[in-house]
């Protein structure tokens, strides 16, 4: 589904990704772990098409299509979704209004009919209920004054509504309390499907207890330095990243 080959990226003359290779198959949940500053968020931004990043070399294919040639909204329409590490606030725009606008924009881009208001409301309410998001919150301006955990839940609500085919979760677990971690994970697991792949960025095994990955990749200095099954996360939890640091020096 997703193929990243030899990706080199810099921002403001600072090299961040240095020949990154990664393949994620349909139906797979891939976890990425790695020390602070290793380039995980950068990778997620580059996948989503954030402007400031300069791609020096390499390619990114989603179902064979070249993502690097698309605008961020076009990438969204072909199914790329990024749950932000730090979700943005949109003052003045009710969450409900935002959700409807984004869903219909994507449908329009794919040549589908707009959703009728009753259908839309039904879907939102169902998704909100599952994520235990109170209805009142949907009337408030998106993310404005939301707590850290509420913002993360709202990201997953958007993901549930938009039904993307490739979901990137950047540290969705940070800021969540114990119950919220379970609720959000259940929300993600409910979306698991043979047609959908996930890239889950996290620092902690606790999330992977809930969302069990098929593969785990270790990122260091802008590169995938080791890949394995779910047991790799447990090893990292025990030994940290020291091994890769010395590996680098050598």
């Amino acid at each position: 589904m997703l193929e990243i080959k030899n990706l080199h990226v810099q921002i403001e003359d600072k090299r961040i990704l240095n020949g990154l290779n990664l393949t994620v198959n349909k139906g797979e949940i891939a976890a990425i772990m790695g020390p602070n500053g290793s380039g995980k968020s950068t990778l997620s931004y580059v996948l989503a098409g954030k402007e400031d990043y300069e791609v020096l070399d390499g390619e990114i294919l989603l179902d064979g299509e070249n993502l690097l040639e698309m605008e961020p909204d076009e990438r969204a329409a072909v199914g790329v979704f990024l749950a932000f590490q730090y979700p943005l606030e949109i003052p003045g725009v009710a969450s409900m209004t935002f959700l409807k606008a984004t869903l219909n924009a994507q449908r329009k881009a794919r040549g589908e009919e707009e959703l009728s208001t009753p259908d839309f409301i039904k879907r939102v309410n169902a998704a909100a209920q599952q994520l235990e998001i109170p209805k009142d919150m949907l009337k408030r301006a998106l993310n404005v004054g939301f707590s850290g955990g509420e913002k993360k839940r709202m990201e997953i609500l958007q993901m549930a509504l938009l039904q993307p085919s490739f979901c990137i979760l950047d540290e969705t677990d940070s800021g969540l309390d114990i119950d919220a971690l379970r609720i959000v994970s259940e929300g993600v697991n409910a979306l698991r499907s043979p047609d959908r792949a996930f890239l889950v960025i996290t620092h902690y095994q606790r999330l992977l207890n809930h969302i069990v990955p098929d593969t785990v990749h270790v990122m260091h200095s802008g590169r995938i330095v080791k890949s394995g099954g779910k047991e790799l996360a447990l090893e990292l939890e025990a030994s940290g990243y020291a091994e890769y640091r010395t590996g680098e020096a050598a």
Binding site: K50, P72, L88, G92
Partner: peptide
């Protein structure tokens, strides 16, 4: 206030074009 580049990117990531995102934020305003 100002529509920041980060807000714009966030809206686009959800599928809105720059114009649609601007209109949405302005309407709210």
């Amino acid at each position: 206030s100002k529509i920041s580049e980060d807000q714009m990117f966030y809206c686009q990531q959800r599928g809105l074009s720059e114009e649609e995102a601007t209109a949405l934020i302005v309407n709210g305003f």
